[in-house]
Design a protein around this nucleic acid. Sequence first.
DNA 1: CGGTTAAATAACTACCTAGTTAAATATGCC
DNA 2: GGCATATTTAACTAGGTAGTTATTTAACCG
Lengths: 116, 116
Amino acid sequence: MSTDPLSHTFAALSDPTRRAILARLALGETSVTELAQPFEMSMPAISKHLKVLERAGLIVRGRDAQWRPCRLKPQPLKDAAQWLEHYRRFWEQSFDRLEEYLRQMQAKERKDARKK
Amino acid sequence: MSTDPLSHTFAALSDPTRRAILARLALGETSVTELAQPFEMSMPAISKHLKVLERAGLIVRGRDAQWRPCRLKPQPLKDAAQWLEHYRRFWEQSFDRLEEYLRQMQAKERKDARKK
DNA sequence: CGGTTAAATAACTACCTAGTTAAATATGCC
DNA sequence: GGCATATTTAACTAGGTAGTTATTTAACCG
């Protein structure tokens, strides 16, 4: 996988278990065992998911006796959201006659340019 | 990788080449060769990236003689942005004394509960 | 038809991921 | 110290990803 922060963030978000873990952490800091509880998955598997989230900077882990409380760190989510914002105009655009027309004109121009 | 749409979307976005391809497509529909041009990478590599983007529903490919024009499809980006929106309050929250205080109270309560 | 261009596929390598079970580590409690 | 609990690490398997070069397919053009 690529080494830039955004790539790490999106990669971390590309797994439903990890997204569910983040959703749980949105309710507040908690232990690994409690995070693991909803999943039919071994503890080591959860531990690995947490490591991925930690490497992506999406969580931090503290120490409270033998517990390792996990806490959400939202900054990478903000950065990801900002990246997506650049494309907002595309999904807000009504895909109406004008847009389709412009697209086809563009394709036609390229075609004509090649024919010269 | 997981099979749900959101996982596919985030996985597709977790590569800088693919994000750059989407950025180029935001300027308008274009051919594979033109998409490949900015990258020091073989055509088959680009072709594979396009396949990933297509599987994620982020692009569609048409046919214009021997060209395969690619076009951005923004719906999955919208869905990803909406997922991230759920966490907006976390990055907008000022991480001030109150928030920190609440967090520590929460940790303390769990500790006390265990001691009973 | 033959040559050229655009793009995809095949076959391969190297590495990463997501899961498993078994063992190790860390800490609190008596 | 020794047991119990929480969590991580080790070692392994199966499958996916990102890239390569060589080959193949598709379409236009003369």
